[in-house]
Each structure stands twice: as C-alpha cells, then as structure tokens.
Amino acid sequence: MAGKQRLYRISFMNQGQRYELYAREVSHGTMLGFVEVGKLVFGEKTSLLVDTSEERLKQEFADVDRFYVPVHAIVRIDEVKKAGPVRVIDGEGGSKVTPLPFYTFGSDGKK
C-alpha cells in the first residue's frame, strides 16, 4: 500500500457554523495552535442534483492551497476510506460535543 493516499474528514467550527470537509493533508503545521489542512477533496458530479452547500464551499475555497484552523475550533478529524458530502451545518448541528475551553498560548492566566 505504498502509493495509497490518505483521506481525512475534518469537522471544525467557523463563525457559528460547523464545516465538514475532506482533505488529503492534515498536520499540526508550523504555526503553533493551528491545524494545517491541504489538498481539499470535493465530490464528483455524478448526477444532475446540485448540492448548494458543496457548491458554496467549492467557491469559498476555490483559490485556497491550504488553510489553518485554530486547534480549539476543531471538532473532529477522522481518517476515512472514501469522501462523503462536504457540508456546512448551522449552529452546533445538534452536536453533543462540548468544545474545549479557549486557551491563549503563552498565557499563564494572570492579568
């Protein structure tokens, strides 16, 4: 399996919405406190039905080679066998996941 490319499903919060995207590259990156995401994967057009959520995300990330998500905004990262639909879910989307408290790196909590 030397030539097999890994595929990841990344769920993260952005401006009160939960994004769920697929990518070939996910790492801790070089910026402290951020997860680096690259090589986004979008579904193939196999039917006449157009998913407006997916089209919106394709437009939003059209010129993006890689992007960085703050660690505290990550809900989940899974390695998967195949890509599913990319989507944006308003609010928490019924999620029972509680985000970790926000922490500023280098801060000792004192003012």
Score class of each variant (00 low, 15 high):
S47T: 13
T104C: 14
A73I: 02
A23Y: 05
V75M: 13
E60V: 04
I89S: 08
P70I: 02
E44M: 14
K110E: 13
L100A: 15
S11A: 15
G91E: 08
R56P: 00
K81C: 02
S11L: 15
L21G: 02
S27F: 05
K4N: 03
Q5N: 13
P99D: 01
F102E: 05
M13E: 12
G94F: 09
E79V: 03
V41F: 01
R76I: 02
L57D: 02
R66W: 00
E44N: 12
V41E: 03
G106L: 07
N14Q: 15
E44L: 08
E44R: 07
V75H: 02
V97T: 10
G38I: 06
A83H: 13
F105R: 12
H72M: 01
M31Q: 13
E92T: 11
T46N: 11
V69H: 07
F102R: 06
V50L: 14
G38M: 04
S107P: 07
M31C: 10
E54V: 11
M1L: 12
D51F: 03
P85W: 07
D65A: 12
F34A: 07
F34R: 08
T98F: 01
G94N: 09
V37A: 03
K39G: 01
E60F: 08
A62G: 01
R76N: 15
E92P: 10
D63Y: 06
G38P: 03
A83Y: 02
F12R: 03
A23G: 11
D78V: 00
L48C: 09
E60Y: 07
H28R: 11
S11R: 09
G29S: 04
D90P: 12
L49C: 00
P70W: 04
S95E: 09
S107W: 02
T30V: 13
E36W: 04
L48G: 15
F42E: 05
V50W: 05
S11E: 15
